[in-house]
Amino acid sequence: MLRAGTLLALGGTAAAVTGCGLFGREDAPDPAADPLAPLLAGALELAARHRIAVDGDPTLSDRLSPIAEAHRAHAAELARLTGATPSPTPPTPTGGVPTGDATAVLTTLREAERQGREAADQACAQAPAERAALLGSIAAARATHVEALK
């Protein structure tokens, strides 16, 4: 027969092993509170900026569409990692994208990518090891995007 102390110890061990409350009643973490939520939002915004630029000047499609697709892939992976459900409607970029002048469009996108790279660098430096590889890949991709937009 098990003593009360043994039962309490077993219950505590089970809770520690499963990583949840004693009976699994612990609420799921809020994906919006995840420190990577701003990086996810940034990836979606960068994808939207590139889409808007292509809509304004279809001659930029070959150059910008692969970059937009990379941002959408990063957003999907960040959403999976954080448990977030991205909105089915693409966000409206806060900084806007000029239209008509390809040079101005590329300059604006290059600056947005540079800022995005800095955000990814910072997130990577602060992330736990299990997230660092993805964040490092995102930072590297954004650095490549900066160069591709020159």
Rank of each mutant, 00 (worst) to 15 (best):
Thr6Tyr: 05
Leu7Trp: 04
Leu8Arg: 11
Leu8Asn: 10
Ala9Asp: 08
Ala9Ile: 01
Gly12Asp: 05
Thr13Met: 07
Ala14Pro: 02
Ala14Trp: 08
Thr18Glu: 02
Thr18Pro: 00
Gly19Trp: 10
Gly21Glu: 00
Gly21Gln: 00
Phe23Cys: 08
Phe23Glu: 07
Gly24Ile: 00
Arg25Ala: 12
Asp27Leu: 09
Asp30Trp: 14
Asp30Cys: 00
Asp30Pro: 01
Asp34Glu: 11
Leu36Lys: 04
Ala37Lys: 09
Ala37Met: 08
Ala37Tyr: 07
Leu40Ala: 04
Ala43Trp: 07
Glu45Trp: 05
Glu45Gln: 12
Leu46Ala: 12
Ala47Ser: 14
Ala47Pro: 03
Ala48Gln: 00
Ala48Asn: 02
Arg49Glu: 06
Ile52Lys: 11
Ile52Phe: 14
Ala53Phe: 07
Val54Arg: 05
Val54Asp: 01
Ser61Arg: 15
Asp62His: 15
Asp62Lys: 12
Ser65His: 15
Ile67Tyr: 07
Glu69Asp: 15
Ala70Val: 08
Arg72Asp: 15
His74Trp: 12
Ala76Met: 05
Glu77Lys: 15
Leu78Phe: 01
Leu81Thr: 14
Gly83Asn: 08
Ala84Ile: 01
Thr85Asn: 14
Pro86Met: 04
Ser87Thr: 10
Pro88Gln: 11
Pro88Cys: 10
Thr89Asn: 13
Thr92Lys: 05
Pro93Asn: 03
Thr94Val: 11
Gly96Asp: 02
Pro98Tyr: 01
Gly100Gln: 06
Asp101Gln: 08
Asp101Lys: 12
Ala102Phe: 06
Leu106Met: 07
Thr107Leu: 00
Thr108Gln: 13
Leu109Thr: 01
Leu109Glu: 02
Glu111Ser: 09
Glu111Gly: 06
Ala112Met: 08
Glu113Arg: 14
Glu113Phe: 12
Arg114Leu: 06
Arg114Glu: 03
Gly116Pro: 10
Glu118His: 14
Ala119Leu: 11
Asp121Met: 14
Ala123Trp: 05
Ala123Cys: 03
Ala123Pro: 03
Cys124Asp: 07
Gln126Ile: 11
Ala127Thr: 09
Ala133Gln: 15
Leu135Tyr: 06
Gly136Met: 08
Gly136Gln: 06
Ser137Cys: 14
Ala140Tyr: 13
